[in-house]
Amino acid sequence: MPASDSMASSVVEVRNLSKRFQGFTAVDNISFDIKKGEILGLLGPNGAGKTTTIHMLLGLITPTIGSIHMFGLDLATHRETILQQVNFSSTYISMPFSLTVEENLKVIARLYELKHIQQRIDDIVKKLEMEDIRHRLTRKLSSGQMSRLTLAKAIMTEPKVLFLDEPTASLDPDIVNKIKSFLKEYQRSEGLSILYTSHNMREMEEMSDRIIFLQRGKIVAEGTATEIIQRYGQRDLEEVFLKLAREQNGP
């Protein structure tokens, strides 16, 4: 399908995307859309190609073949315009440890050329309940506080598309709950499109409007959580995950 045909509803259009690293195919000819205001879950076992896909969508890895369009523009030729409207967060990324939370947010705000920087920082710090840590050095943050900081840096730029790579991994249930609630509410109010990866199947069912299941770099299932569960004749998404993951890993 040409990029322009589905432009009205899709903010992200991925077509025939592949990434091969010397002798290994990480992502194998995948195509999908993310619609405006949609949360798309990207599910799959370790090494299925989820993170590589997100890195290609962020322009950090060059695809071997295939195209990525966002807002109707080709990422390969309109990188700056697209990335101005996109952000990401992940449990596995970090921010400069020797800067305070507020200093890190200021640098990001300048990097995205935001206006009214102090106001934006005050707002996001309040929204994510970070008032008590805003002047704390990043190296002194707990993992939960660090997750909130990386989420704050992503949300503060008011992106239209957000990539979240396991944003709640290794966090305690209370913080996971707070982050999920915040994301859901924020996504509804701002009409944000989100690509979400997680290993937590319940979280995936709760968060995602639609799910793509990746296995060895290929899309093996796509639909709502209910549709996928029915298609594989399992009781829940976790059973589907286990069935597909065991198929990938062998008996």
Binding site: G59, L60, L83, Q84, V86, I93, L111, Y112
Partner: peptide, 18 residues
């Protein structure tokens, strides 16, 4: 090196920075 040590390169090059 400062960016590398802070694992900040992803934050920088996933932004509009050229």
């Amino acid at each position: 090196l400062e960016e590398m040590w802070a694992r900040n390169l992803m934050n920088l090059f996933a932004s509009p920075l050229t």
